[in-house]
């Protein structure tokens, strides 16, 4: 096979990979925020549910979660297509790690900020969303960036439930053409490029969000 042909097939796979990331990432972020906030502020029974979700998805491995959702749920009468299984499994998995990012970032906002917002008589909701969260968000960006890269890497697992992502395309090309060196070399480079692009955007986002927080010590 021509090198150009190989690359073009692989690029098709890369598009699928990006699609999965684009769907799983929002799910992960929603899970991270909702369960991170529940874990911090909700009453005991809800907290327990959040802890169960977090421990379960962090304690077992992503591939097993993917298989469970794809192969086991049909036994419960819930049949979902491979793509949905992939997005749900990866979104919930990365989301569970994200809860700890959200929690850690909120807790790292200096206590004085919370106290000043009480002294100014903001309501609990205003304190969280107007004072604490904008500062916590800045702290969240770098670890969320790392998680996003973990997500890109984890999408390769979906090739094992027959989704035609970048890794799947590579594996099937390798099985048929035997040009394994070029194929896997290109694939590694493509993943690397995706991760670097992601990192670039994250860095820019961090810069924009940290306006005013720049030289911040705790004594603001």
């Amino acid at each position: 096979m021509e090198f150009g042909e190989i690359v073009s097939v692989l690029l098709q796979g890369a598009v699928v990979t990006i699609e999965i990331v684009a769907m799983a990432l929002p799910l992960a972020i929603i899970m991270a925020f909702s369960f991170g906030l529940i874990r911090l502020y909700a009453s005991a029974p809800f907290k327990q549910i959040a802890i169960f979700y977090i421990e379960f998805f962090r304690g077992t491995s992503a591939l097993i979660q993917l298989y469970w959702i794809y192969f086991v749920l049909p036994f419960f009468g819930i049949t979902i297509d491979a793509m949905t299984a992939a997005v749900v499994a990866l979104g919930l998995n990365i989301g569970a790690y994200g809860t700890e990012v959200v929690r850690g970032a909120i807790q790292s906002v200096p206590k004085g900020q919370f106290e000043a917002s009480i002294a100014l008589n903001f309501t609990a909701t205003q304190r969280l969303w107007r004072i604490i969260m904008p500062q916590a968000l800045v702290n969240m960006i770098p670890p969320f960036g790392n998680l996003a890269i973990e997500l890109v890497k984890a999408t390769s697992l979906v090739s094992l439930i027959t989704i035609g992502d970048l890794t799947f395309k590579a594996k099937s090309l390798a099985d048929t053409t035997l040009q394994v060196g070029e194929i896997f070399g290109v694939v590694l480079v493509l993943y690397f490029v995706m991760a670097q692009c992601l990192m670039f955007f994250i860095k820019r986002l961090e810069k924009r969000l940290s306006k005013g927080l720049g030289r911040g010590g705790i004594h603001s």
Binding site: G112, A116, S117, A119, L120, Q135, G212, G216, H219, S220
Partner: peptide
């Protein structure tokens, strides 16, 4: 009540 703090506690993300 209003309070002024030893360590200021200004909101760093606001002008």
């Amino acid at each position: 009540l209003g309070m002024v703090f030893q360590h200021f506690n200004l909101f760093p993300h606001m002008t």
